[in-house]
Amino acid sequence: MRTAYTISAIGHAAVLLWSVWSLAANPLPVSSTEGLPVDLVTVSEFSNIAAGSKDAPKTETAKPLVEKVAEAKPVEDPTAKVVEKKEVKAAREPPPAPDSKPTESESAKKQAETPPDPIADALAKEEVKKPEPKKADAKPPTPPKKPAPPAPKFDPKQVAALLDKREATRLAAAGETLNNAPSLGLSNGAAAQLSLTELEALRALLAQLWTVPAGAKDPQELVVLIRVKLNRDGRLAAPPIVLTSGASPLFMAARDSAIRALFRGQPYDMLKPEHYEQWKDVEITFDPRDMIRG
């Protein structure tokens, strides 16, 4: 027994010793492969940028920069529009409901205060009676009203939006509330609108061809909006139509430089023919204000 233990102990010790020696002597071979750092960059990282300024602090929910108040926000989703219309109907009905509550509490108070006076009692009863039919009237509309309360505040500023019978998918240019404090983004950011290399290429080409009138003091005059109709081969179908107007020499210079860029850029090969329906009609804003702000 003892010899068996001894043999076993010696055997184990030998195996252990051998393994320490042999394994330590031959470290696991590690072949060195050249590391290739890979960084995934998506197109949207460049094109999906909110309107803002480069040095603004980053916020969790980025608000687009809105410099001008317009009638309504763009409503992208048709379903959202339907909900909005429903709310309009609800807003007309509610008047009776708010009435009932104050009268109820008022009458209760009166009852508690003046119990001995019979005349007052009678008056009070009358008053109590009055609201009751009202209450009965009001009750039915309340259940469907419940989900509505959060939104249907009547806002006179929004009348135009309520009367609007156009397709739900229209896009307004400006926002409904001013937001002068831009959040992180770029002035040319157009998040939620475009994210494609074709458009980025078009934008880059025009930026390269467009010579900004130098040394303008009032850059507001230099913003030019131009509508361009394109042929399938990427050439202008007609001379560009200028949608902004002005008579100052500065505006004329800005307008002509923008038109010159559009002429020089054709044919716009980067626009693929299979997307022709998308780009056959383009509205381009040439806005040098950021360049001049510095």
């Binding site: 467009w210 383009v282 804003t285 360049m291």
Partner: peptide
Amino acid sequence: AVLKLNITEGNV
């Protein structure tokens, strides 16, 4: 819809 594009950079 009309495609909208903003060009805010040019060259001098």
